[in-house]
Simulated scan of single mutants.
Amino acid sequence: MSTSVGEAVVGVILAGGMASRMGGGDKPLFTLAGRPMLDSVLERLAPQCSRMVLSANGDPARFANYGLPVVADPVTGFVGPLAGILAGMDWAARELPAAELIATVPGDCPFLPRDLVSRLSEARRAQVADIALAASGGRTHNVVGLWPVALRDHLRQAIVAERLRKVALWTSRYRTVSVPWVEGPIDPFLNVNSPGDLEEAERLARMLES
């Protein structure tokens, strides 16, 4: 795997959601177009990154087929995606010190753009920003972003001492650039949050194959 932006970036797939609206389970392992949705996410993100990591709690054996590091939240309790971002930062700092950035995406986002990391990186540099987040359809996707590993101690403090849970409240503390993508026939950041979303994703996947 290689990054398209000329620097080491660790890709972190956030797979810690409880899928309550879909009856529970791991959404990234739900079948889409005949294979686990995680396959599609990896296929699109992995070529853009130096290393890949899965952020997920529970038994890591359920992801054994992927041969990737599985990192659990470094704080107790289900505190949401900020803990997954922190887990990715901690892994990068420990295992790949050359990586100054991590790129995070949800594990239920099967149509990610193949230029995600490069465009976020370019915008971050151009705007002299700390954090770059993707946007489409007039809204910012707060967990699809590029984050400096150097912020990990500040993030840990916010989660543990301040009990901060909302991603937008944390990013508001830093210079953050929102990078828009044109949706075209498919929103590249479509999330599969319900059975209806999965049906729509199946339709879109068939359209891409035709």
Rank of each mutant, 00 (worst) to 15 (best):
T3Y: 06
S4A: 13
E7H: 14
A8Y: 06
V10P: 04
V12L: 02
I13D: 05
L14H: 11
G16F: 01
G16N: 14
G17E: 03
A19I: 11
A19E: 10
S20F: 13
S20Y: 10
S20N: 14
M22V: 02
G23D: 05
G24R: 04
K27Y: 07
K27G: 05
P28Y: 10
L29R: 04
L29G: 04
T31H: 10
L32T: 00
A33G: 03
G34Q: 08
G34R: 00
G34V: 02
R35Q: 12
P36F: 13
P36R: 08
L38M: 06
L42M: 04
L45R: 07
L45D: 06
Q48Y: 01
C49I: 00
S50H: 15
S50K: 09
M52A: 06
V53T: 02
V53I: 01
L54Q: 09
A56G: 01
N57Q: 01
G58W: 07
G58V: 03
G58D: 08
P60V: 01
P60R: 00
F63T: 01
F63N: 00
N65R: 15
N65W: 09
G67V: 07
G67S: 03
A72C: 09
T76M: 12
T76D: 15
G77S: 06
F78H: 02
L86A: 02
G88I: 05
G88N: 07
D90R: 03
A92M: 13
A93Y: 13
E95V: 10
L96M: 09
L96V: 13
A99I: 03
A99P: 01
L101F: 12
L101E: 08
L101G: 06
I102T: 04
T104K: 08
G107T: 01
C109Y: 12
C109D: 03
P110M: 04
R114H: 15
D115K: 11
L116Q: 11
L116G: 02
V117T: 08
S118H: 00
S118T: 07
S118R: 12
R119T: 03
L120R: 12
R124T: 13
R124Q: 13
V128C: 09
A129H: 13
D130G: 09
I131T: 00
A132F: 02
A134P: 07
A135S: 15
G137C: 10
R139I: 13
R139P: 10
R139L: 07
T140K: 04
V143I: 14
L146W: 00
W147K: 11
W147I: 01
V149W: 11
V149F: 11
A150N: 00
L151Q: 07
H154C: 14
Q157D: 15
A158D: 01
V160Y: 00
R163I: 10
L164K: 12
K166T: 15
V167P: 00
W170D: 02
T171G: 03
S172K: 09
S172M: 00
R173Y: 05
R173C: 06
V177E: 00
V179F: 12
P180C: 05
P180S: 09
G184N: 01
I186A: 06
P188V: 05
P188H: 10
F189T: 03
L190Q: 08
N191P: 13
N191I: 11
S194I: 07
P195K: 08
E200N: 14
E200P: 10
E202A: 14
A205V: 11
L208W: 07
E209V: 01
E209H: 14
S210L: 15
S210E: 15
